[in-house]
Design a protein around this nucleic acid. Structure first.
Lengths: 130, 130
DNA sequence: TCCGTGCTCAACCGATCGGTTGAGCAACAG
DNA sequence: CTGTTGCTCAACCGATCGGTTGAGCACGGA
């Protein structure tokens, strides 16, 4: 079924959400929000190997949440906060739709007799989407 | 059996982010934001099995993003938009810290001589980390 | 110059994930 | 009662994930 050979071709939104789904990664982001840091600095508090943290940083980098610059042999990591907007925009859109729906429901309720059923019988022929 | 509690003791934030990391799940949420729907309605547009969509809904349910009610043999699915706040709060906190950091950096730059190094040598023994 | 530090790459392992099929239960419809 | 519909549970499969160890490269300091 439609094999996507581009395994890394996940959409940006998926990458960001997925990157932030890991508590260690979220902690890294939180600490980077305070200020830039190097791998060894970042890895120090955790009891995992430096390589593991490096992998985490790469996931964050692939998601666009973080950038690394070159400075001698160090690679200071910097948080790119703009990517957050991608998420918040998506979230806000869904939330607003949901709220709009409540308003609409309110409207409908004001207009209805007494035979309300919150869910229509709904034969599967209802053109649900796309 | 009947172990309603999650054996996966992941924190709520991880569950929400992880649930939204899948495009199909995100699409489900977007459609549920428009209005409640049943499994078969939700599954219809996708070319995967109904069971797969049921699994997706369970993930969303475990994340608290969705609730199912009982209505005859149907289980209308309802979006619980409040859980979004968990994410937005976390995101906003990180973003605000990052912005605060820019202001602070501005302050520091105004106060410094010429010997500035944006990143300290940072020996691992110093409690330099946040 | 050689050594130590900082980081990355590669191979591997167990667990989880997204998907499948198949069976089975609960509630209508006839 | 017999089907049919709506959904869930269980077992299984391949891919990905988070972690490890080990090697290796690029600098800077003595």
């Amino acid at each position: 079924m439609t094999e996507r050979s581009d395994d890394v071709a996940a959409d940006p939104l998926s990458r960001v959400f997925s990157a932030l789904a890991d508590p260690t990664r979220r902690d890294l982001v939180a600490r980077l929000a305070v200020g830039d840091a190097t791998l060894s600095q970042l890895a120090e508090p955790y009891d995992v190997s430096v390589q593991a943290v490096s992998k985490h940083l790469r996931v964050l980098e692939d998601a666009g949440l973080v950038t690394k610059s070159r400075e001698a042999q160090r690679r200071p990591v910097h948080l790119e906060a703009e990517v957050f907007d991608l998420m918040t925009k998506w979230i806000e859109r869904s939330r607003q739709q949901a709220e709009q729906r409540y308003r609409r429901l309110d409207d409908v309720l004001a207009d209805l007799p007494a035979d309300v059923d919150p869910l229509p019988p709904a034969p599967p022929t209802t053109g649900a989407n796309p």
